[in-house]
């Protein structure tokens, strides 16, 4: 009954607030924007300083200084020449940076489809021919040091994909495919969140990108591939309940007859860091809480409450899901 408990990384390490992720980039695409942020910040402070100094002189300065400031010349200098110089420089910088960030990814880069859904993320790893190799949800594994191209789509309303430590955000718009490049320089978990208001529990639509050393990454993917090929039926109560309680209508577990596509894929749910689209730590207890009454945790989400199930059933379901690795 009592399996050893694995302590997974807690949410804090994923959704860190300080230092601000925008200024604490973990890859080159976020990195150049971080540099830009500092430049802009410096520009803003200097210009604000100039304005405040001018205002100070205008209000409290000596008569001589004041009379110098009190003419049209200062408008031409401060209000026209200064902005034109500063803005021209910024425009050139901004446009070149936009171009560099917009160059297409190297051919053969790994591609992943990420689809925003109300209120979670469908993930599909594509093979080199563009076919789906593996399904997953709410979590994306990438190799360190490689550019990964994300094909961003939406299944319902507009969402926006944002993992600030890896890249700026890009919208997921019904009827369109937007391409985003991400690249991590060091292993770790990077949190993200939907950034376009998508109704209901938009606030609780998180995401995790996990970067591994390339070798480790390939091992994980290979293990997963191997796992789907031959998933022996567990024969446990959990598996029976998964069928009888109707879970399979929405959820898929590869290598089993459970094939629902409306909700997140659960093939590897046991390995995930988070539950409920990046909002809860994933452990047996939270799994039980989520299965039993997800509405109490993330009001408005699409998973109905299973309060009718006896607690024993919920526990067995949780145990079954915990084994899906």
């Amino acid at each position: 009954m009592s399996r050893p408990i694995s302590t997974r990384s807690s949410l804090e390490s994923v959704f860190k607030g300080w230092p601000p992720p925008v200024l604490d980039p973990a890859g080159p695409y976020a990195g150049s924007i971080s540099v830009l942020s500092w430049v802009l910040f410096a520009m803003a402070v200097v210009v604000l300083g100039v304005v405040l100094a001018a205002l100070g002189v205008a209000l409290f300065g000596g008569q001589r200084l004041k009379s110098r400031l009190g003419g049209q010349a200062v408008i031409w200098l401060g209000g026209i020449a200064l902005p034109i110089v500063v803005l021209t420089a910024l425009l050139v910088y901004g446009l070149s940076l936009t171009r560099n960030l917009g160059t297409p990814a190297p051919p053969g880069a790994m591609r992943v489809q990420v689809t925003g859904e109300m209120w979670w993320w469908r993930v599909a790893y594509l093979d080199s021919s563009g076919k789906v190799a593996l399904w997953d949800a709410n979590e994306l594994h990438i190799p360190v040091g490689e550019t990964v191209v994300l094909e961003l789509r939406s299944a319902d309303v507009i969402h926006s994909f944002w993992v600030p430590r890896l890249s700026g955000k890009l919208d997921m718009i019904p009827g369109r495919v937007n391409l985003m490049k991400i690249k991590a320089d060091k292993p770790g978990s990077y949190g993200g969140q939907c950034a376009e208001y998508c109704g209901g529990p938009h606030a609780l639509m998180g995401f995790v990108v996990v970067a591994h050393e390339p070798a480790e990454f390939r091992r994980i993917m290979a293990d997963r591939q191997a796992a789907l090929a031959s998933k022996p039926p567990s024969g446990g109560r959990g598996e029976q309940l998964f069928a009888s309680a109707g879970c399979a209508a929405c959820h898929r577990i590869a290598g089993t007859p459970f094939n629902g596509m409306a909700g997140p894929d659960l093939t590897h749910v046991g390995t995930r860091r988070t539950l409920g689209a990046g909002i809860l730590p994933n452990n047996r207890g939270t799994l039980m809480g989520w299965i039993g009454n997800a509405q109490a945790i993330k009001p408005g989400n699409r998973m109905p409450p299973y309060s009718v199930l006896p607690a024993d059933d919920i526990r067995d379901l949780a145990l079954y899901l915990e084994q899906q690795r």
Binding site: I33, L40, M43, L48, L90, G168, K169, L170, A195, Y197
Partner: peptide
């Protein structure tokens, strides 16, 4: 005067978000 100072600060962050890559981070 207070409005002037506040407006200038808002204007400067406005110039910042007019820079497309910066906007990709702070948008929304």
């Amino acid at each position: 005067l207070g409005g002037l100072v506040i407006f200038v600060m808002g204007g400067l962050t406005g110039v910042m978000v007019a820079m497309v890559p910066f906007d990709w981070q702070v948008h929304d």
